[in-house]
Write a protein that binds this DNA or RNA. Structure first.
Lengths: 243, 243
DNA sequence: GTCAACTACTTCTATATAGAAGTAGTTGAC
DNA sequence: GTCAACTACTTCTATATAGAAGTAGTTGAC
């Protein structure tokens, strides 16, 4: 859908072509997060378009969450506000339902594996990297995660030192691989803890757990990651905003 | 936030004032779902605004989901596509995870009651109507619901014949009371079936259930409805789209 | 040094205008 | 009667222009 490299479709209206051109320049890393883009006047001169058309193109990117405007100051490349937006990707509340906080993560293992059939189909390849993690809140394990990403798309991930992996993976995807997670689908159900998860969670094998299966997508619609997380059913909280 | 009656703020830019004026006319029922609004030219003449400004106002309402444009044909009041959008408000999948379908509903009881404290706070009144329902899929009960709405805002709801209540309540809110549910927040957790729910669901009292607490909001941000639904944990599926 | 005024920007609102693109019903040749 | 052409609309794209509103750094009076 959204061209990431060249390939601007000349049949598209001018404002969409400019949007694509700008999106490509952003993807290429020409500007860092927080940098200002050229002003509307400059862009309009550079691309031989009226300011109105330029504004329409940038507005698109604002709507898509890539840019940010500040009247009088400029139009800026948005730093993906992971600390804020990622709450929406990690929607477990703390036990008492109070304000959510980002849980700590500890890596259990990383390995290049052949994807399970269903995962391979979603990611479009069966050469995948599997990451196992435990997430804890106040030193208490709350989620055991199994994460799969394409080994090609994330080449070199396995050699990133654990110390460089923060509590959140999506900023790593963005900073190290330029891959932005734009949306995700969570599927929830209840189940029973398999042995491995039970151990990580400190519960008994077969105890009731919440199971969250998530597929995360890039802005262009391709699946970036598939994961399944399990947590003690007794302490599980999940919030979903619907609109 | 969004004025529903008069009270157009003259300090707002013209396009927002027009948006508010149109929103008020829509809320007043001047046009039915599917009706065409006056054309951009007519609106621009009527309101002494340029077509560009008119387009900006209507575009807002398109973005808010109230209008729909069809090039060459007109701009239309959107019929709230409850059959489609309401999936997003009822996100349980069928047992096998296949395509969701709208479950049947049967009314258990309706009564004017004093709201439980937490509910009263959310709805802003403790004079509420309580509706109890059971939702079934293929004649099998899957959810027991307790629903609360403001008795004032929904005056007369208790006398709507049951036959006029379809499987979905939000269209009733819209058609009979002009109240559009624009977004909602679901809070999920696990629990155990209280006696009343267990009976409705055909499970044993104390059996594990999924508990979904929902607060539904009108476009102006006020809470319209609060409900809690319980379903057999074994058969529970929930899908959440995050962006 | 303080800080108000100024300057040179920026984005934002609004207008008027021209023509492209699309729709839906009517006209009229056959 | 069929159906292509036409007509009178509609929304949509794009331009040029003017000035308002807001920002951020500099200048200069005190």
């Amino acid at each position: 859908m959204a061209p990431t490299r060249s390939s601007i479709d000349a049949r598209l209206p001018a404002y969409l072509q400019l949007r694509d051109r700008l999106a490509a320049r952003i993807a290429s890393g020409e500007w860092g997060p927080g940098d200002a883009l050229p002003s509307e006047n400059v862009l309009s001169r550079e691309h031989q378009l009226s300011v109105g058309t330029v504004r329409r193109a940038t507005q698109q990117l604002v709507d898509e969450g890539l840019l940010e405007r500040r009247q009088g100051a400029g139009t800026f490349l948005r730093k993906p506000a992971f600390d804020a937006t990622l709450f929406r990707f990690f929607q477990m509340l703390s036990e008492d339902g109070s304000a959510p906080s980002i849980p700590q993560s500890s890596l259990v293992s990383r390995a290049l594996v052949t994807a399970p059939a269903a995962v391979g189909e979603v990611l479009g390849t069966d050469r995948v990297l599997r990451i196992d993690r435990v997430r804890s809140l106040a030193d208490r394990p709350i989620l055991a995660e199994e994460i799969y990403v394409s080994a090609d798309r994330f080449a070199g991930f396995e050699s990133i030192p654990e110390s460089a992996l923060g509590p959140l993976l999506y900023p790593v995807y963005f900073d190290r691989f330029g891959i932005l997670v734009a949306r995700a689908v969570d599927d929830l159900r209840f189940g029973h803890a398999p042995e491995a998860s039970a151990q990580l969670l400190g519960i008994a094998s077969g105890d009731p757990v919440a199971v969250i299966e998530r597929t995360a997508f890039a802005p262009d619609g391709t699946a970036v990651e598939w994961r399944v997380a399990r947590g003690d059913a007794k302490r599980f909280r999940y919030r979903s905003h619907i609109s």
